[in-house]
């Protein structure tokens, strides 16, 4: 009974909460810029509005163009059911689910890039090319981090790796976990197209990565993309929160509270970083991603003794 309630809450949270993260980031950025900024719930209004709008579809495109957004959204939803949220295990959890999660995100990326290429626009081609290039560097960092937590906890499922078991290792292998946290934070920024990798608010298509890939999508398709992107952001934030606070108290309410505060904290931190730093030159992005790989790699090496 307890597990069912927990799973229902989990599903509700991962489906409803994600756009709020984007709202928090925008609020923090507005605060730093001295503006009032859009309402906290603006991302919800945007998505609802987009679902009600019509759209214009390019004559060049085929069904692949329409397949991109639903696949990206459904893979994100499925991944959000694999990651542990508060205290208890995720609704879907089995040995090796970490690999499924990583490859589901890969599937979403694959079809988003294909949908972009389907328009025949060189701007979208550029975006797709950058997206898949940077993914090649982010992926090993992500897996090295996973190997670190897997080695510490001896578990091969995300719920085990980021469960209460991990908490005891913060005292013995804190350095490793801290390195992985920083490495993964960089990966999260890259995967979710945040500054310093990509500026979602830039006005020049030539410098964009993710935004330029979805230039031709509009209406419900764009709504799906925005919603899927926010779920993906939520997934990475949740992993970071569970990595930093892998605790489970007896009280589920306290667990959810800690988790919620953590998630909002990550969003606020992203907002601060976006306010304080500028976007990197595209040619410098690989350097930062390689640094993330090295951080996670060092985290792993520290465990070898």
């Amino acid at each position: 009974m307890h597990a069912i309630v927990h799973n229902l809450i989990h599903i509700a949270v991962v489906l409803i909460a994600p756009p709020l993260l984007v709202g928090v980031i925008n609020k923090v950025k507005a605060f730093f810029a001295g503006r009032t900024g859009p309402p906290l719930l603006q991302p919800y209004y945007d998505i609802i509005k987009l679902f009600q709008k019509g759209s214009v579809i390019s004559e060049t495109t085929t069904w692949v163009f329409l397949a991109g957004p639903p696949i990206a959204l459904s893979t994100a939803i499925l991944v959000s059911l694999l990651i542990p949220a508060a205290g208890s295990a995720a609704p879907i959890s089995f040995e090796g689910d970490l690999i499924l999660a990583a490859y589901l995100l890969g599937l979403g990326r694959f079809f988003t890039a294909l949908a972009a290429m389907d328009t025949g626009s060189s701007f979208e081609g550029m975006g797709a090319s950058r997206e898949v290039t940077f993914a090649c560097l982010a992926e090993p960092a992500f897996f090295l981090g996973l190997a670190t937590t897997a080695k510490l906890t001896g578990s091969l499922s995300l719920s085990g790796m980021f469960g209460p078991e991990l908490a005891s290792h913060w005292s013995s292998a804190g350095a490793s976990l801290a390195l992985v946290f920083v490495g993964w934070f960089i990966v999260a920024l890259a995967e979710n197209s945040r500054i310093p990798f990509d500026d979602p608010n830039t006005h020049l298509e030539l410098t964009m990565i993710h935004e330029v890939m979805v230039l031709d999508h509009g209406g419900p398709a764009l709504g799906m993309i925005l919603y899927g992107a926010s779920i993906k952001l939520f997934v990475f934030a949740a992993l970071l929160v569970r990595l930093a606070t892998p605790i489970a108290t007896r009280l589920p309410i306290v667990d959810w509270l800690i988790f919620g505060v953590g998630i909002l904290g990550v969003a606020a931190l992203i907002g601060v970083i976006e306010s304080a730093t500028a976007r990197l030159r595209l040619s410098h992005i690989p350097v930062l991603l390689v640094a993330a790989c090295l951080l996670c790699g060092f985290g792993l090496i520290l465990l070898a003794r």
């Binding site: 679902f51 759209s55 579809i57 060049t60 025949g120 031709d216 209406g219």
Partner: peptide
């Protein structure tokens, strides 16, 4: 949703 509302144009 799209079938009912979409119109066709060239790529942006």
């Amino acid at each position: 949703r799209v079938k009912r509302t979409a119109s066709r144009a060239s790529t942006w």
